[in-house]
Design a protein around this nucleic acid. Structure first.
Lengths: 135, 135
DNA sequence: TTTTAATGTAATAAAAATTGTTACATTAAA
DNA sequence: TTTAATGTAACAATTTTTATTACATTAAAA
């Protein structure tokens, strides 16, 4: 994760949680995050796919939470947003003629997936509600 | 970490561990990893700074481990190699006029550092020796 | 019915991060 | 003296990330 997607998604969810009675526009959320509105709409798409958010088009449109903050676990959010393993990428094309090159990716696989597992478990101890309560 | 640095560094260390009686050249290691030799030499620089590896110049030069594999903890390796938080980057310049924009980075700080702490602790349960023994 | 203001999304551009390459000074063994 | 290694700077290429533009679609309000 050398990107801002988790921070952006959690920012969006925090806004929706704090102003849960209103339909918030992507432009308005974008100005709180200070990021392009299209980025917000793309991230909202992911949040919708996971059933956390609902959006509606047209005048007076916008987005709001579909479920309670206590039902959105931060590990699930991370899972939805991530695009690489925590420990990074592996070198593909390592040399199969070398005993280490031949086997290392198998060994890295278990190390990488165990690390991912631990992070997800840790994040899942917190929900959006917990997070927003800290404000 | 959307890069291959951890995988590359651990590959290098695994080679040095497996062939611990020899001085391995960066060219040779590069051909096992299938990566440019200059990348290997740069990463070796980091490993040297941490006292794990020693290199020598000149004909018959190369690199080898400076300490036993059991003394190199994978969390320390990750710490030496990483260049961003596990959960990614934060949005700088969030809007201070918005209560969420104003406070979110403080909240993210603790979530991010706690996640980092957990990963380091988990990785530190393994050493280079443990890792190489799996081969 | 028209105007207004929102989402959704594709296409593209720009910026940032990562990886690769070239070149060469330095070093030390053969 | 030759050979073969590291160290490193400078630069190029590639990949990833973020931003932007454009516009079709939608729906409330005037």
């Amino acid at each position: 994760m050398n990107n801002t997607r988790f921070a952006t998604a959690l920012h969006i969810l925090s806004l929706l949680s704090k102003y849960s009675t209103e339909w918030l526009s992507s432009d308005w959320m974008a100005s709180s995050i200070n990021v392009n509105p299209v980025i917000v709409r793309k991230e909202l798409g992911v949040l919708q796919e996971n059933g956390w958010v609902v959006s509606r088009k047209g005048k007076e449109g916008g987005s709001r939470l579909q479920v309670k903050g206590s039902e959105i676990r931060l590990g699930d959010l991370y899972q939805a947003i991530r695009n690489s393993d925590i420990l990074g990428k592996k070198n593909m094309n390592t040399n199969p003629k070398c005993p280490v090159g031949k086997e290392i990716n198998n060994r890295l696989d278990s190390l990488y997936s165990e690390t991912d597992r631990i992070v997800l478990a840790s994040l899942n101890e917190q929900t959006l509600e917990n997070f927003v309560d800290q404000f």
